[in-house]
Design a protein around this nucleic acid. Structure first.
Lengths: 217, 217
DNA sequence: ATTATCTATAGATCTATAGATAATGC
DNA sequence: ATTATCTATAGATCTATAGATAATGC
């Protein structure tokens, strides 16, 4: 038997689905540690025994849930940073799309993402896997920007690109995962945030900012 | 009886001290959840019973440990942002000192800070208390900068100040707490990081940057 | 006959306490 | 006499399993 049993009967598939949905809800609400197997079974309307018929152990449930999340992210991300897609685009345009893409992804299933992050921070082996994706996104973005480094007037263009990416990544993380780390900025809209963030990295790298939106003129 | 017993005998004070030290070490290494009362007692060289003679419960231990940390932070922080201290200083100078101060504080007892953050994220009541200090630091910095907003050439100086503070805060958090969230930047030194961060917010707010250090000329 | 589910419970792991024993200081 | 410590264990909380019972599909 593997991590998760491949169901053969429709009834079983329904139960499996309900277990996964229940787990996702509960983990989003309370985090992984405070979600017990009994909780999950209860919300799915089945017994603890049924749970263990489907999953080898509690870890298997997490694995299925988080793998699914990771896979979705991987696919969307790879499509988003495809160099062909960005032929002719400027640094500012690429970074703006990066911010919008990340905000969109992060707002969906925020609770589950948070749990994933918490688990990754605790379990180094699992963390490797998660951060691998983050690194891949970073690396691909970096390539896109490095190919355009003649736009950058900073003394050390590569360093400037790395720094700008780190700036955006940090601010995104705080804005998306740090619900509780409230700040003076949480009254701004996502649109304002994106505009200022882009203005900031453009000013830093000394590249032309995108045109101001009309409503500000 | 309160949270913690006030010891009357020297032997008892020594035990209390050893318990606190042991707890700080273990929590720094493994986090709060993976540190059991038995662990703490063992490392302190006493029994679980002795532990409970000193602390009402496990929560009392955390409270003492983290309160102590918070108190130190509060005092240092208040001294650091005293307006008198900054009379005649520019925005760039203030922000540079903020970065250096935060990096210094954060590097000390990093593990414990991390545990504090984790607990704050989980327990909203405790979180309130922790983030109160963060907010206070933010608010005082904000005042210092707002008093100098004529330096700022951004369309909306208040917004720019808020954004710049959020940028620095986010980057600090990632750099200090995010040991595991590795990035393209972790090969840079703290000094490089501070220099580029200041260059970035200065460019964004359109204020004169501090002079370049000699070694770069 | 096979697959899925349920009930009941063993086993592990922690927190916290009770009661006995030892050390301390008047 | 009071304070501090130890040993042993109760009680709570979870994960995981065993064995009985029910549903499904050939």
């Amino acid at each position: 038997m593997h991590w998760v049993r491949t169901a053969k009967q429709p009834r079983s598939r329904r139960t499996l689905g309900r277990l996964l949905d229940a787990a996702e809800e509960l983990i989003s609400e309370k985090g992984i540690d405070d979600t017990t197997v009994a909780d999950v079974a209860a919300r799915a309307g089945c017994s603890v025994g049924a749970f263990y018929h489907h999953f080898r152990d509690k870890g298997a449930l997490l694995r299925v849930l988080l793998d699914r999340l990771g896979q979705e992210f991987r696919e969307t991300m790879r499509a988003a940073v495809d160099p062909k897609r960005w032929e002719g685009a400027t640094i500012a345009e690429i970074l703006e799309a990066y911010l919008q893409f990340s905000i969109e992804m992060g707002r969906e299933r925020a609770g589950l993402q948070r749990a994933k992050l918490a688990l990754a921070l605790r379990d180094p082996a699992f963390g490797e896997e998660v951060f691998e994706l983050q690194r891949e996104l970073g690396a691909r973005l970096r390539e896109l920007l490095l190919a355009r480094k003649r736009e950058v007037a900073h003394r050390d263009p590569s360093l400037a690109i790395d720094f700008a990416l780190e700036q955006l990544r940090s601010m995104l993380m705080m804005r998306l995962d740090g619900d509780l780390l409230r700040t003076g900025l949480d009254s701004t809209t996502d649109a304002d945030f994106v505009r200022e963030a882009i203005a900031s990295v453009c000013a830093y790298m000394k590249i032309p900012p995108p045109p101001e939106p009309e409503y500000l003129r």
